[in-house]
Amino acid sequence: MRVEEVFHPGTLTCEASDPLAEVARKMAAEHVGALAVLDNDRIIGIISERDLVRAIAERADPQEQTALSFASRQLETATVSDDTKDAARRMLDAGIRHLPVKQGHMVIGVISMRDLLAVETWL
């Protein structure tokens, strides 16, 4: 199966300068575990629930510290034509649960480990 068959189109984002408190509110409101971090409409990282937990553990001020301060900057991505098993393997190898999905140079959505588990469970 291909990523294009299971990913979530559209990318939920935050700005690099957004305070962590706003990032957490947005994740909660949208019921997602990660947001793409943008700087002038360019994706520069991804911030996840794990990153927010790390911020809390480090006693970061959620009003003062920004998304960029705790975002993962080494960005792994998938393409719409990638095989879902390959995407899952890359996630496992990198220890991550979300991959932005690209078509050409544009990020068009996200695929999560939950999406890939659903594929394996329901097929």
Rank of each mutant, 00 (worst) to 15 (best):
Val119Trp: 13
Arg90Pro: 10
Val23Ser: 09
Ala67Cys: 09
Met91Asn: 10
Ala71Lys: 06
Ala36Asp: 08
Gly33Trp: 03
Glu76Gly: 01
Leu20Tyr: 05
Trp122Arg: 14
Thr11His: 01
Ser81Lys: 11
Glu58Thr: 11
Ala67Met: 04
Thr13Ile: 09
Gln65Lys: 15
Arg97Ile: 00
Ser112Leu: 06
Thr13Ala: 05
Asp18Met: 14
Gln63Pro: 00
Lys85Ala: 15
Val101Gly: 06
Glu120Arg: 14
Ile56Gln: 03
Thr84Cys: 15
Ile111Ser: 06
Arg97Asp: 11
Cys14Leu: 02
Leu68Tyr: 13
Leu12Val: 08
Gly109Arg: 10
Leu99Asp: 11
Arg73Asn: 06
Gly104Pro: 02
Ala57Asn: 11
Ile43Trp: 00
Ile47His: 08
Glu120Pro: 00
Lys102Met: 14
Thr66Lys: 14
Asp51Ile: 00
Ala67Ile: 00
Met113Ser: 14
Ala71Gly: 06
Leu20Pro: 07
Val110Ala: 07
Pro62Glu: 00
Val32Ser: 03
Val80Met: 10
Val119Leu: 05
Val119Arg: 12
Val101Ala: 09
His98Gln: 08
Glu76Arg: 13
Thr13Pro: 03
Val101Pro: 12
Asp93Ser: 14
Gly45Ile: 04
Met106Ile: 07
Asp86Arg: 13
Ala67Trp: 03
Glu64Trp: 01
Ala118Arg: 15
Gln74Ile: 05
Thr121Arg: 15
Ala57Lys: 12
Val53Asp: 10
Glu22Leu: 12
Leu35Ser: 06
Ile47Asn: 07
Cys14Phe: 05
Val53Glu: 03
Ser112Gly: 11
Leu20His: 05
Arg25Ala: 11
Val107Lys: 04
Lys26Ala: 13
Asp93Trp: 02
Gln74Leu: 12
Met106Cys: 01
Gln65Trp: 13
Thr79Leu: 07
Pro100Cys: 01
Ala88Asn: 11
Ala71Val: 02
